[in-house]
Amino acid sequence: MEQLYYSLLAMLLGVFACVFYFFGSNWLLGVIFPINHVSNQKMAKNIRRAAAIRPWLFLGPALFFLGLYLVYPVFDSVYLSLHGRNGEDFVGLANYQWLFNDNEFIESLINNVMWLLIVPALSTFFGLIIAALTDRIRWGNIAKSLIFMPMAISFIGASIIWKFVYDYRAEGSDQIGLLNAVVEYFGGTPQAWITIPFWNDILLMVILIWIQTGFAMVILSAALRGIPEETVEAAVLDGANGIQIFFKILIPQIWGSIAVVWTTITILVLKVFDIVLAMTNGQWDTQVLANMMFDWMFRGGGDFGRGAAIAVIIMIAVIPVMVWNVRQANAQMEGR
């Protein structure tokens, strides 16, 4: 309980520090470049000077945190990936050479590609279907909320939920996992699915699809609603049926949003870690890059060189999306 007070105190201190910094720096600016009781010429000059400095005061703390916690680490990770396990002796590309000859890494790479192909596609697909269907019915909003709900659940909580669904009891005893109960109901043999390669990968992906479909649905539902009704009406007049309207009128108009959903989930998939850690910890051919990286960070006291090399590989995979995002944002700003 006591630490909760510390926490509240820290929060107050943090907020106070921010307020103090912003007000204090503003006050200081007023003192250094006074605008009262000075000649008009000087006042104009001081106002200009203060206006030139103030943005940097506003940006200062943010730039400090971004720089320290995100920008510097990118360069340091690249640096570390060229060094040995404690990050001291230079080893050139040895870590990367080791990576590409390591079976676990190849396995992770293949699994990551599978995740990348399946999860964004299915999440977007389900999100789109649900968005389109729920827009037409009266209880659509409740349905949407229920499907959106897993977004609020942690990956580890979701893993427990699904591990329970996949639970396996020996044949003959009552299954308490939903999946095996369904399999048995249809005359199949219950299996310890989590230990069967390939299928276990799919089952882990199901968890992320379950979480991300709600996100896709929210974005796409808003996009669908933004479509001008005249286009649909015109199509109806021309005798298009529901399916034609959906694929030929609606979809082409929301390509932009589909791309947003797709890339956002792609980025998430590249970083997927908690689910694999909790469900299998990379056993039974389910290893992925992020979990392998975490593993090397601590394995045998931690090998920072190899861990950083894996992180760099993840970063390289993210770069295309990053470039695309930045270009989109720039284009949007110029349009404004």
Binding site: A51, A52, P55, W56, L59, L66, Y69, L70, V71, Y72, P73, V74, D76, S77, L80, I267, L270, K271, A290, M293, F294, M297, F304, G307, A308, I310, A311, V312, I314, M315, V318, V321, M322, N325, V326, A329, N330, M333
Partner: peptide
């Protein structure tokens, strides 16, 4: 009004997707 505003915004957009994994070890 500040010089390099566009670059700073692009930086923020770029940092949005930097994987956390990059930051952990450093």
């Amino acid at each position: 009004r500040l010089p390099g505003r566009g670059i700073l915004i692009a930086l923020v957009v770029g940092l949005l997707v930097v994987p956390l994994q990059m930051s952990l070890i450093p």
